[in-house]
Design a protein around this nucleic acid. Sequence first.
DNA 1: CTAAAGGTTACAGCGACAGGAAGGTCAATA
DNA 2: TATTGACCTTCCTGTCGCTGTAACCTTTAG
Lengths: 128, 128
Amino acid sequence: MKISELATKSQINAKTIRYYEQVGLLKAPQRASNGYRHYQPGDVDTLIFIRRCRELNIPLDDIKRLVEVQADPNASCAVVDKIIAEQLAQVQRAQRELALLEQSLQTLASCSAEQVEKCSILHKLKAP
Amino acid sequence: MKISELATKSQINAKTIRYYEQVGLLKAPQRASNGYRHYQPGDVDTLIFIRRCRELNIPLDDIKRLVEVQADPNASCAVVDKIIAEQLAQVQRAQRELALLEQSLQTLASCSAEQVEKCSILHKLKAP
DNA sequence: CTAAAGGTTACAGCGACAGGAAGGTCAATA
DNA sequence: TATTGACCTTCCTGTCGCTGTAACCTTTAG
């Protein structure tokens, strides 16, 4: 199939697919005589897998390792486990940071002053 | 004062200070005869203000507007209010997204299989 | 025959810096 | 005086995961 069909079936932009090939996440497909990329049905599954990983915010480099691990039946599952655990830890770190951020922003409250000289928000931002 | 002193006092990297000047967030300072940037004491306050805003994850473009508003005593406080409110809303959106992400990652659980063929994580990633 | 739709490459831009190269300047020391 | 080391300058590149654009070629439909 051509790239647009793969894009539709995998729900990934054709440009993104070319990008994935460029960065080595997706292996280069065969080319037709006109230079068009020609994909196999299995490529749809690979891309759907990649998309699910991206929806979990997993970095491309990690996804690359997940894809490689799948190609090697002797590979240990520990690699997969570690990547997912790290991703979870990172999400939890980000959550804690955002919670602090939210608190800080809320203490700024909203300002109903008319002129910036009396603006309570700016006042607090200048001297916390 | 020279840039390194400003960097120390404001707790902002000298490279970052030059970058802020480049993108128009910080006005270009006077130059000494040797070409060195020469800053005024007030610049410390401006940079500390900028740093506090950055700690709240406020984008440089918005900080730029906050700085401009402070220079204009007739400016309305509504601008400030809007920027902070939007920032808060964005942080809250991000929090909701991360909560969903965390859930999804947790349903993948951890995998104790030895071989990737039996890996429950990969299994779930392939067919959710 | 022509126009639209789809394919190709290559390059630039996003945000907010950080790293490094290559060179000029300054103060202190041997 | 020569040199060392710290500091300053500009300019360029890389980060991450794409997306937009330009310029061009191929296929398909009317």
